Amino acid sequence: MPQRSDWSDQPCPIARGINVVGDPWTLLILREALSGARRFDEFKRRVGASDNILAARLAAMVADGLLVQRPYSQGDRPRQEYVPTGAAADALPILHAYAAWSHAHRPSSTEEPVFTVSCRTCGHSTDRVEFCDNCGAALEVGNVVWARPGRWQGRAVNLSAGGPPGVDQGRA
């Protein structure tokens, strides 16, 4: 996927990060990968991207170390699933920060109920990005539940501590 600009060699870490997670489709795909989507058709249904956009973003996310490809069928037409890496799990605070910023500065008049982030340790919702504001527990992939509005309401980031099943723990 060609970038509008290549900031991969910039001294600023924000600029370098934009090269990897700055694309809106990438953030939506990352959201779904952390929520359990693994297959092309799942991502397509959940994010609504066209085939060519989705294929390009998935390939870029594999190249950038956010996802790894694993075969899930054999035969005449082998298929691949996309599994989030440790680098993808480490991006969870970015998604939380986007959600918090959007609630504060771009509220939706139709969103009932709202997107919430809850801590599995204490069960309370939190407005913090990395730690629960009620009990102080780390908001990591294995300790977070997302309550999402609309058709995805209640879908959780339900990944086990120490690495979710099927998640590649390598760091990109």
Rank of each mutant, 00 (worst) to 15 (best):
G86C: 10
L92D: 00
D90W: 12
S108F: 13
Q74P: 10
I94P: 05
P107F: 06
T85P: 01
V83C: 12
S102D: 06
T110M: 06
P113C: 11
L95H: 03
S108I: 14
V83R: 03
P113K: 09
W101R: 05
R106S: 15
G65Y: 06
S102K: 15
Q74F: 11
Q80I: 00
A89R: 13
A88D: 11
M61W: 00
H103A: 14
Y72N: 02
A87D: 03
A104R: 15
P107R: 03
D76H: 13
A104L: 12
H96C: 03
V68E: 01
G86A: 13
V68A: 05
G65V: 07
Q80F: 07
E111W: 06
A104G: 12
V62S: 04
L95T: 09
A91Y: 06
Y72C: 02
V83I: 14
Q69F: 02
P78F: 12
R79Q: 09
H103R: 15
S108K: 13
Q80W: 11
G86M: 11
G75L: 09
V83D: 04
L95I: 13
A60Q: 10
A89C: 12
R77N: 12
A88I: 00
H103F: 03
H96F: 05
R106D: 15
L92K: 13
A91I: 01
A104Y: 06
Y98E: 15
Y82C: 04
Q69P: 07
A89S: 07
M61P: 06
